[in-house]
Nucleic acid binder design. Structure first.
Lengths: 209, 209
DNA sequence: GTCTATAGATTGATAGAC
DNA sequence: GTCTATCAATCTATAGAC
């Protein structure tokens, strides 16, 4: 039956996700992965044609986690205004960090950087996700009811969205950078501080722009 | 004479800096480094006891570049206000990117992440630099003459600097994240866009806070 | 689908002459 | 300080039985 296979494949991806995130893709050896899971060497090569292919599956896993644990929950606050979305984004990102286990920083970003050269397709996939993320955030920001310019009929709709798009790019950059900083400091609270500061600054800007 | 030695050592560090930044520390082999420089294997081990030690020297090199090419030039605009410093920071960071050669993103951050596990000392050194950077930026921000709160005598000096420190952490996070994003998109202009947006948002905030 | 055993290539590091 | 030659370990990937 395929039951055990699916189990093994999933176990490999989950364990590799953790391993690649902590040690890095190149530094992590398949030996360690195999010892950790108790799965035989050739069984890995039954499920994945190469280590690189495993890395691609792990990237998909992390993108899925990123979406479900950070982005989707944050966008549920879209109705509460731009600052609320920003705060939720950083607050949920905080929950993905685990300094005690050595899992800090952004796993998507780190793994993508390491796989980019050998697998350009991975870089394109990640890039497409983040471009989409910026657009989704921009939509949410442009719909913020607390925005002054939204009530100003002299401001064209396109201009509003264009400015929202630029702020979305800023938010994504700050989020990625804060994840890096949290990893460097070994303290997830860095994310909360940066997120709150950004939310405050943007909120002030929106009220007076 | 030590002339040639110093030359070889420097050549090794410079070439390794480029190699480690593009390929990553683990993925880059000493063979490639040796072929690139034309230096013999054992000569490398005369100058550095291990690949890791070479990595540490490369980190110092990148920190030096970061300071001289990005931070120092930006802080020269301290007298022109917070927004000017922020814009200069991102503008100068832009010049460190070279998409054509595959040198994108923040070399300090990437290399530090890879070396962190094997060499905790490296992580501490990089962390200390960025903590210091945040303090220096906070000092510059707190001295911004265009700040409303600076003229408000009811606001304590400590509060002013504390808020400046939080914005400094935001700026550093945004800068690191923008470097990552620029690497992902293969376009240094991402840095300019994020930097300008941040400068605008902060400037608006300062005028009305 | 899963296993044991092994191939084949690469890598970081060392020995010793000059 | 620099070189050539080589070691020993590690790693990815494969072969073939069950």
């Amino acid at each position: 039956m395929t039951r055990t296979t699916a189990g093994n494949r999933e176990r490999l991806v989950l364990c590799a996700a953790d391993l690649f995130h902590r040690r890095g893709f190149e530094a992590a050896s398949l030996d360690e992965l195999l010892n950790c899971t108790g799965i035989a060497r050739s069984n890995l090569y039954y499920h994945f044609p190469s280590k690189l292919a495993l890395g691609q599956a792990v990237i998909d896993h992390w993108l899925d986690v990123y979406e479900r644990a950070i982005v989707a929950p944050a966008l549920e606050h879209a109705g509460e205004g731009e600052a609320a979305v920003i705060r939720a984004l950083f607050r949920h990102a905080c929950t993905t960090q685990d300094p005690e286990q050595g899992r800090v920083g952004c796993p998507v970003s780190r793994l993508c950087t390491e796989l980019a050269e050998a697998a350009p397709r991975v870089k394109e996939e990640v890039r497409a996700y983040f471009v989409g993320l910026e657009l989704r955030l921009a939509d949410a920001f442009a719909a913020d009811p607390s925005r002054e310019e939204a009530r100003d009929t002299s401001t064209a709709e396109g201009t509003v969205h264009q400015r929202a798009r630029r702020r979305a790019a800023l938010v994504v950059a700050a989020l990625e950078g804060a994840l890096t900083a949290a990893g460097l400091h070994g303290d997830p609270r860095t994310l909360l501080e940066v997120g709150d500061t950004l939310a405050e600054v943007v909120a002030e800007d929106l009220q007076h722009a």
